[in-house]
Design a protein around this nucleic acid. Structure first.
Lengths: 343, 343
DNA sequence: ATGAAAGCGCTAACAC
DNA sequence: GTGTTAGCGCTTTCAT
């Protein structure tokens, strides 16, 4: 972009105003402008003012691309989540990016679906931008992805799950244990029959298995399972209950749902059929979403503090930036069974 | 980061492998490596293979930061949305980033809340990264923000609203008209009383006003309004109906909600109180969210094709990249009243 | 407190 | 088909 005419009104691509031009206007060298921006206390008050004036006059916008190249620091964080439309990930992302923003970092976002291949490609693309760190969802990644990330030599935080062998550090909880906790709760509450409703998500499957195994062990009974390959929706929750009823649901069965969306659907279908909750069917959701306390009946659910999770992930990275390997590598944020009316 | 030892196992910050090193290994110059990557057909099959081998051996990852600086093209798109946790924005963002990703662009994300100041700061930060384009939500931006964006000389797409004076181009619909359409629907359906439930969102307010004005004109009646300053939730929807009942709600009133979340809350509260929907209260939502067809009764709502909106925004930018000013500047995606059982 | 010089790792001309 | 030369707009280092 040859800027032949130095007309300030000629504006393409950031007006092409550079530090050098700002310096010229302020009667100082380009480096001094750089200093005025990064450490204002290292330039005299007088020149500082002249520089600030020149910046205001030209509408100068620093070029962070050049800065990143020169300093080998991009102030960018790559964030890879399965889906932004799923509240469990977006709320965590929100908390994460809030903290990172406060620390001067920006977020490059990619959605990976639940596809390891796609994740691998996204990781490669992200790494080419030389982010200062990367956030990944889950702990299962392709061998190549792990290799690339290790080679990149930047902090990596894996969230929403825990692992004994994180790439770098991870912040999450055990999905198996969450399922077990739901089973313990159901057993203790005295439900003599159980079923599960599960979305097409590997972590949901682990919760289901944790639940089913523990419940069966506690009671010697078999847990009936309804599995979907897609995401949880209210409509599928209704459908799941219908299917269970068609198969002859025993009254007093407790339903462990992989998402509050399913659970809410079950509540609605139960109401539509005149079934009492928790009398005829008891319902346990997962995620403790915002609406869980406002349904009728209110929803018993497993709460993950997604706010805390996102913040912890951000703090883990910030800690890595300050002190390479000081922070603990694995942080289990746990979960909590929130008992309300539905079970 | 002085890479004194050229040991390939010493890996900090992308192993520091450069095109030059790859070229050295392949016995060609650095430029040839660049060519092999950007236009493989311009190098001989033989050298291409040697280069690819060298890349594989070294685990070379291109440095897009350097590339962006040299070419003045970042392949980055800045996306500014009020909130990622709100499905109406995140679903649109999903569709948008999908298309942009297919065209080789990545997304830098910022949440702006509903705060123009914060948006302005985010815009400045984004511009410093020299994105190839910027996506903004809404058409109201600070004067300074508009100025910076104009100066940046890059395509800007404003979404989720339309304007006669877009910064560059915009893709959305008229919120006033959406409210009016809801009023027309309510009048035609014969509801003789109306009320609104509105979240703290400037666009929601315009829908409310569009509704109230049109409805009052059609019937000469006054529309009762419940306004919140926060986001719509199911719980607040229940509360809103309770408040209206406390104030003495006339049976047969239609409620125009600024979000399906509110509307669903109203349905639940009505059911809890034994009120018939739409007999005692009729409900119109907004957004036609995924669950609208699965509630009981199913929810009448105003559908915005968020998928289409996000895609259209992406295509508008792509068109701008290809042909500076060929594409039309304003695209009205419209909306549709979806009549179901609740009204 | 300020400046000069070097260079980050690429792409974009322009040779040959 | 391949190489050479110049930058892109900054930060870093070393002088002064």
């Amino acid at each position: 972009m040859a800027n032949h005419l130095k007309d300030p009104t000629e504006s393409h691509r950031g007006s092409g105003v550079t530090m050098a031009e700002v310096g010229r206007l302020a009667g100082v060298s380009q480096v001094t402008v750089s200093r005025a921006l990064s450490s204002p206390d290292k330039v005299s008050p007088d020149t500082l003012k002249r520089i600030q004036d020149a910046i205001a006059r030209t509408g100068y916008v620093p070029n962070a691309v050049a800065g990143a190249l020169a300093s080998n620091k991009s102030n960018l964080i790559g964030a890879l989540v399965p889906s932004v439309t799923n509240i469990v990930y977006s709320s965590m992302l929100h908390a994460f990016s809030e903290i990172m923003w406060q620390h001067g970092y920006q977020i490059m976002l990619s959605e990976t679906g639940f596809d390891a291949d796609r994740e691998e490609r996204a990781i490669a693309t992200h790494l080419s931008r030389r982010p200062d760190a990367i956030l990944l969802t889950g702990v299962h990644h392709s061998a190549n992805a792990r290799h690339m990330l290790r080679n990149a030599g930047i902090p990596v935080v894996e969230i929403w799950d825990i692992s004994d062998t994180p790439i770098d550090c991870c912040v999450g909880f055990s999905h198996t244990e969450a399922g077990q906790a739901a089973a313990d709760f159901a057993l203790k509450a005295g439900y003599r029959h159980a079923a599960t409703i599960t979305a097409g998500d590997e972590r949901a499957v682990r919760r289901r298995d944790g639940f089913a195994t523990r419940y069966a062990k506690g009671l010697g009974g078999v847990v009936q399972q309804i599995d979907f390959t897609s995401s949880a929706t209210l409509g599928l929750g209704r459908e799941a209950l219908s299917r269970l009823i068609d198969r002859g649901l025993t009254s007093g069965t407790v339903l462990f749902c992989s998402s509050d969306q399913f659970a809410h659907g079950v509540l609605i279908e139960a109401a539509a059929r005149g079934l009492a909750v928790p009398g005829d069917v008891a319902v346990i959701g997962f995620g403790d979403q915002e609406f869980a306390g406002s349904t009728n009946p209110t929803l018993t659910s497993i709460r993950i503090d997604r706010q805390k999770l996102g913040q912890a992930a951000a703090h883990a990275l910030v800690a890595r930036f300050i002190d390479e390997r000081k922070h603990s590598a694995v942080y289990n944020v746990g979960f909590e069974v929130i008992r309300r009316e539905s079970a």
